[in-house]
Amino acid sequence: MAESGTVHENTTDANTTDPNTTDENTADPNTAGESTAGESAGATARNRTVRPGGGPRGVSRYVLRVIAIGYLFFLLVLPVALIVWRTFGDGLVPFVEALTSPSALHAFQVTLVVALWAVALNTVFGVGAALLLVRHDFPGKRLLGAFIDLPVAVSPVVVGLALILLYGRFSPVGGLLESWGLQIIFSTPGMVLATVFVALPLVVRSVVPVLEELGDEQEQAAHTLGASRFQTFLRITLPGIRSALAYGVVLCLARSLGEYGAVAVVSGRLVDQTQTLTLFVEERFQNFDQPAAFAASTALALLAVVTLLLTRLLRPKD
């Protein structure tokens, strides 16, 4: 093989078609005689590195592929598949029954309320902050960006603790709000705040790059033509960032539906009161009700898969 390589500049071509290769082999002595010895040696080295006989490189490629897929299979695919299989192992009926129990339905409802509030707040904030970061100039812009990214680095449990320290019953602010009849911690507002915290950067970071790319020429033109700023936003900016915004909202929604740690701390984990779907999974599992825990997990996993497919569709292509 290496011998044939010395002759032919295009070893790749030679190797792909067998008849050619054998031809080159037979013609080898002739052509080698025509070129000088030094050239031939150089060519040998060169061609060996480009395609060392086709064998070793192919094998190493195969090994890498097997390692990568094997790792993903045992870490991701098999565990998730097992849960789905256990959930539906006895048919659809136990799954539906487990998810339509009063506790499960209540958990669904709490999850949905909290997630929708959190997504609404973060979407409004996200678009506003992205416009601010891209379209406006002010001192401390980098600092604002860093603060927006801060939640990524904070443990969900610390998020919960932080909110308790400000809004808990025994803090000045929490006490004052409670005297007005507004309970934050161990109640829905606290769970919304916790969810907003953990999902805060997602919409901003999805919208910012697209806003930067769009530029503001069209907005300027609309302005010049007499459009109000609100009209400009509605007719020019919003359509421009539509898919990026949708991408951010989907990410934010997925994060909100799936948040566990921060909500576990601020909700007080009161069954049938502040229990979200993720808290339901944990509580059912700890109480040896595996079917319900698995069913709720499967429901959340299905949501995750839907999210993956949606983000795949919406992901900005650059």
Binding site: A68, I69, L72, L76, V77, L78, P79, V80, L82, I83, R86, A254, L257, G258, E259, Y260, G261, T278, V281, E282, F285, A293, F294, S297, L300, A301, A304, V305, T307, L308, L309, T311, R312
Partner: peptide, 25 residues
Amino acid sequence: IVDTLIDLPFALPTIVAGLVLLALY
């Protein structure tokens, strides 16, 4: 499909991740 799967840990709630791992391992 493999490429899409990489993001699964971001989309899957962490408590579910713990549960599925506990089921298999």
